[in-house]
Amino acid sequence: MSAAVYLITGIQAAGKSTVAQALAERLPRSAHVRGDVFRRFVVGGRAEMSGDPSAEAVEQLRLRHRLAARTADEYAEAGFTAVLQDVVLGEFLPFTIGSIRTRPLYVVVLAPRPSAVAAREAARDKSAYGTFTVEALDSALREGTPRLGLWLDTTDLSVAETVDRILEQARPWSS
């Protein structure tokens, strides 16, 4: 398999990190790029996203997505398949797709039912939901995010089954 980029998105606790890691482990030469790490790099002056984000928070989110896209491209240029995962919703999905130069690019949206996400969130050691709720982010995903790429309801799928579906059903992005 030649170098490519997989963009894995969905709301918090949708299984992005776990699925991205499992997908990367199935590929012969791969890198798992965790988009949230770029947010954590900002130490002074970080503006957090909220339901009503400031202009600075939006700009920092765009920066985060650009940096993640460039990192994925650099791995692909070096011959790795990059599996980039992050929360990329609404207008940020076409923005991030447009920021990734590598082709083929596969876009995968994990969209389990909100009840499954809430159960996963309750079972985690960490809390991903501060000012947001599962229902609000799920609404932003389903109602405010363009239907680009492969959308998977992973509610009843294991991680291995989800990776199988991605490898079988994802098609290269074409703009």
Rank of each mutant, 00 (worst) to 15 (best):
E121L: 04
S115C: 05
S115D: 15
A170F: 00
Q60M: 05
T162V: 01
A136F: 13
R26E: 13
F80I: 02
E74P: 10
P112S: 10
L157H: 08
G10N: 11
Y6V: 06
T96C: 08
G15N: 02
M1W: 14
A170Q: 01
R113F: 08
V43Q: 05
L67E: 03
K16Q: 04
A24G: 12
A57I: 04
R120T: 12
A22I: 09
V134H: 07
V19E: 05
V87G: 10
D164N: 05
S175Y: 14
A20H: 00
I166A: 12
A119S: 09
R64H: 07
S115L: 13
L110P: 03
A160S: 13
L167C: 07
T96N: 05
Y129M: 08
A140M: 15
V43K: 11
W173C: 07
L23F: 03
T154Q: 06
A69K: 09
L61F: 13
L84K: 06
A31I: 00
T9I: 02
G90F: 12
S30G: 06
S127V: 03
W173H: 13
Y6M: 07
F95S: 02
A118Q: 06
T155A: 01
S139W: 15
R142W: 13
V42F: 10
F92C: 02
T18K: 09
E56H: 11
A122V: 07
A123P: 12
L167Q: 08
G35M: 07
P172V: 00
Q60Y: 10
S158W: 13
V117C: 08
L89M: 07
T154L: 01
A118G: 00
G144Y: 14
G35T: 02
S174Q: 15
S158P: 09
